[in-house]
Design a binder for these strands. Structure first.
Length: 213
DNA sequence: CGTCGGATAATCT
DNA sequence: GATTATCCGACGA
């Protein structure tokens, strides 16, 4: 998927990103996968045909998008973690800034300067913000060129034909399966998100028992 | 620059 | 009731 283009056409216009960072989730064999414990209403799309979008809501405020990768019944997919905006940067910037203002609305106005271009889709939830991907895109067929949300190759990239250098490492923010190197990114690309380990449970496993109030 | 805590609600146990 | 495939601003170096 690295180097491929994900684009979303809405009434507001088109935004496209070249994927620079992805993660694999291998379902039944992967304790970090949402589909590890079988089918639920949330992950149902993962059990469907490949090429469709599995969009999920997390942390009470963020969306992330995967592409289903295996035949019906096998719930494996690729999470799109980051991309470089190659079309519709103004629209992407609008969406990202608007979200930022909404978040800060209750507090004091932020005196921060302009968002750097590399941060527009740097991270799975930011990528969904920039592309306006939400619950209503869950199940969309991204393999259909006529679909508003679609995947394609990147024929216009000057690097076509070259072999990109791909780095590999553990996935971000997962606790189970943290030792599996299922994260892949274009080496040295500035739009790749920063690695963060899963949030440690306060004080470690021992204090989890102590905290029984 | 790095590290930390709060926000915030669907989902699962 | 706990956890979460995250982001942002604050703070300290």
């Amino acid at each position: 998927m690295l180097g491929c283009v994900l684009e979303h056409e809405t009434e507001a216009g088109l935004v496209a990103v070249e994927l620079t960072e992805v993660e694999a989730y291998t379902g039944a064999t992967d304790p970090a996968s949402h589909s590890y414990r079988g089918r639920t209403s949330r992950n149902a799309v993962m059990f469907g045909p490949p090429g469709h979008a599995y969009v999920y809501f997390t942390y009470g405020m963020h969306f992330c998008v995967n592409v289903v990768c295996m035949p019906e019944g096998t719930a494996e997919g690729i999470l799109f973690r980051a991309g470089r905006v190659i079309a519709g940067e103004l629209l992407a910037r609008e969406r990202r800034v608007r979200r930022r203002l909404e978040t800060a609305a209750a507090g004091q106005p932020s005196a921060r300067s302009v968002l750097p271009a590399r941060d527009l889709a740097r991270g799975p939830a930011r990528l969904c913000q920039a592309l306006a991907i939400n619950r209503s895109q869950n199940g969309a067929d991204m393999s259909d060129p006529a679909s508003p949300l679609r995947l394609r190759g990147n024929e216009s990239d000057a690097r076509v034909g070259e072999r990109p250098e791909i780095s590999v490492g553990p996935r971000v923010g997962v606790s189970a399966g943290a030792d599996t190197n299922f994260r892949f990114w274009l080496a040295g690309d500035p739009t790749v998100s920063a690695y963060r380990p899963a949030k440690a449970r306060a004080g470690g496993p021992a204090s989890a028992q102590a905290r029984t109030t």
